[in-house]
Amino acid sequence: MSKLPRIDYYFDVISPYSYIGFEILHKLKHQWKGVSIRYIPFFLGAIMNETGNRSPGMLPAKAAMSMTDLRRTAKFWNIPFTPNPHFMDWIMKYRPTGALRILLALEEQDKELMLRAARGFWLRLWFRSEKIFENSDFEEVLKAVGVKNVQEVIEKSKEEKYIKMLMKNTKEGVSLGAYGAPWINVLTADGEEHLFFGSDRFHLIADLLQQPQPLPDKLLFNQKSKL
């Protein structure tokens, strides 16, 4: 018996490409029919360590080109984005694991709240150049997205349960061959798995799933107006 195709989207809130991919996928879920999506937080730092990969920010020429690439892509898709001048200093000092555990705790309460909080973390880091690593940061994001029991969620996220959940998600990513983020596992109706890396592979995923090619709203509107 065939099943509906599913996209498993592995992401880290510290990753700007995960942010871009998240927003594109959010737009596509209104264009693609009969495709379910799972959003799976994992710890990119552990993925990089496991595979020996390095952040683009560690190579100045690559870092500069990455920011140019991100700005262009964000503009094309109408996604709020501003390069963060503090990012390299912060990732040497902090881990995003607290924010990721917040998302896991929220998901049990309300999946949509989890997605709004993920966007809130990305907007802080990659639009307003604000931190996402400490309790005060968590409080601001949770209040902004409408969480009522803010302190309860923060304390709950520190439980061993969510530490293990994050480790499990990260190990799953490694087992799927992940070396960066976002990492995407597409399960087709025949049960086969198809792996993709990055935020610029959605045209290939569309072809695989026989869905409309991805377009930003401005081009989608122009295309419809010509019909």
Rank of each mutant, 00 (worst) to 15 (best):
W77Q: 08
L220E: 05
M167T: 12
T51I: 03
G177C: 05
Q31I: 03
D200F: 08
V150L: 03
K3G: 10
S225E: 11
R72S: 10
Y17Q: 07
E112T: 06
Q213I: 01
Q223W: 00
D190C: 03
Y94G: 08
V147F: 01
M65V: 09
F202R: 00
Q109V: 14
F202T: 01
T73L: 10
N169P: 12
G98M: 10
F76M: 11
S66E: 06
G57A: 00
Q109C: 07
A117G: 05
Y39P: 01
K161H: 04
N185M: 11
Q213E: 08
S55A: 13
K3N: 10
T188D: 07
A74N: 06
K226P: 01
N78P: 00
I205T: 03
L176S: 08
L104I: 15
K93I: 11
K164E: 14
K33F: 13
V141E: 00
K161D: 02
S15D: 09
D200S: 13
K226I: 14
R95W: 09
I102C: 05
R101V: 12
N49P: 00
L209P: 03
P214F: 04
I132V: 15
H194G: 00
D207Y: 09
F197K: 01
R201L: 06
M65Q: 10
N185E: 13
P96T: 15
P85Q: 12
K161M: 10
W77P: 02
I154A: 04
L220F: 03
R38P: 00
L166M: 14
L176V: 07
N222G: 05
F133G: 05
N53M: 04
Q210M: 05
R124D: 10
D190F: 10
R54K: 08
F11H: 09
T68F: 10
P5W: 00
R6I: 05
S157L: 08
K131G: 14
P41M: 10
L220Y: 07
S129Q: 14
F127K: 14
A206Y: 01
Y17T: 09
G52P: 06
